[in-house]
C-alpha cells in the first residue's frame, strides 16, 4: 500500500488549485439532481410511502374533477331528453314548467362545495404527511448534512437537495395519482352512465384538469419540503456531526 505514497502524495498536493478553480463554491443543478435521485432510489420504500400520500390526495382531486365533467355530460343528456319531452308537452298544453329543476341544481352546487372542501382537507393532510416524512428524512441524515457542510456545502445546497427530492416525489406521485383519479372516475361514470361517455366528454377541460392536478401535487410537495429543508440547512455543522441516530 505504501510503495508510491510519498511520490503520489507530492503529486496530490502539488496540483495546486489556483489556476483551475475560481473563488467559487457551487453545486450545479445537474449534480444536485443526481445526488437527490440517488437519495430517492436508495430509500425507495420510504419514498414510496411519502409519494403515496400525494398519490391518494391527487387521485381524490382528479376523481372529483372527472366526476364533475362526467356529471355535466349526463346532465346535458338529461336536459336534452327533458327538452324533447317538453316540446311534446308544449305541443299539447303550451306551458313551460320543468318541476324540481332549480332545487336539483342547488343541491348539485352544495354537493360540489362539500366535495371541494373534502379535497382541500385531503390535500392539507397530504402536505402534512410529506412534511413529516421529509422531517424524518432530515433527522436521519443530520450526520450526512454535517459532513457535507464540512466539505464546503453552503446552506442553499442542502435546501436544494431536499427540495429536488421532494419535487421529484411530488411529480411522480401526482402523475400516478392523476392517472388513477381520472381513469378511475371515467370508468365509474361510464359504467353508471353508458359507455359512450368518453366520446361525449369535454376533453380539453379534462386535460386541463389533469395538468392542473399534477401542478398542484408538485406544488404541495414543494411547499411541504421547505420547512424541513430549512431546518436541515440551518443546523450548525458541529451540532449536525454530533447527532447520533
Amino acid at each position: 500500500m505504501m510503495i508510491n505514497v510519498r511520490e503520489l502524495a507530492k503529486r496530490a498536493v502539488e496540483t495546486r488549485t489556483e489556476e483551475r478553480l475560481g473563488e467559487q463554491i457551487a453545486l450545479p443543478w445537474s449534480a444536485a439532481f443526481v445526488i437527490s435521485m440517488r437519495n430517492v432510489t436508495i430509500r425507495l420504500g420510504r419514498a414510496a410511502i411519502t409519494a403515496s400520500g400525494i398519490v391518494l390526495g391527487i387521485a381524490f382531486l382528479s376523481y372529483i374533477w372527472t366526476a364533475k365533467l362526467s356529471e355535466d355530460v349526463i346532465e346535458r343528456d338529461m336536459a336534452r331528453r327533458a327538452r324533447l319531452t317538453q316540446i311534446q308537452i308544449q305541443s299539447q298544453e303550451s306551458e313551460l314548467v320543468i318541476p324540481g329543476q332549480e332545487e336539483a341544481e342547488e343541491e348539485a352546487q352544495a354537493r360540489n362545495a362539500r366535495q371541494m372542501w373534502l379535497v382541500v382537507m385531503s390535500l392539507l393532510v397530504c402536505a402534512v404527511g410529506i412534511s413529516n416524512s421529509m422531517l424524518m428524512s432530515v433527522t436521519e441524515r443530520f450526520r450526512e448534512i454535517g459532513t457535507m457542510k464540512c466539505l464546503g456545502a453552503l446552506d442553499i445546497f442542502i435546501v436544494r437537495l431536499f427540495l429536488i427530492e421532494s419535487i421529484v416525489l411530488g411529480v411522480l406521485g401526482s402523475l400516478v395519482g392523476a392517472f388513477i383519479g381520472h381513469v378511475g372516475g371515467l370508468l365509474m361514470y361510464a359504467w353508471k352512465g353508458g359507455w359512450d361517455l368518453p366520446a361525449k366528454l369535454d376533453w380539453p377541460a379534462m386535460i386541463f384538469y389533469l395538468v392542473l392536478s399534477i401542478l398542484i401535487g408538485t406544488f404541495i410537495a414543494f411547499v411541504a419540503a421547505i420547512l424541513p429543508a430549512k431546518r436541515a440547512a440551518q443546523m450548525p455543522a458541529a451540532a449536525a456531526l454530533r447527532s447520533e441516530i
Binding site: 488549485t17 457551487a26 440517488r38 437519495n39 436508495i42 464540512c150
Partner: peptide, 22 residues
C-alpha cells in the same frame, strides 16, 4: 462519515463538485 448512498469515487469527488471542478 462517508455519504452512504455514494460510491468511494463519488465520495471523494463531492468536495470537487463544490469547488466547481470539471
Amino acid at each position: 462519515n462517508l455519504i452512504p448512498v455514494m460510491t468511494a469515487l463519488e465520495n471523494v469527488t463531492l468536495p470537487m463538485i463544490f469547488a466547481g471542478m470539471g
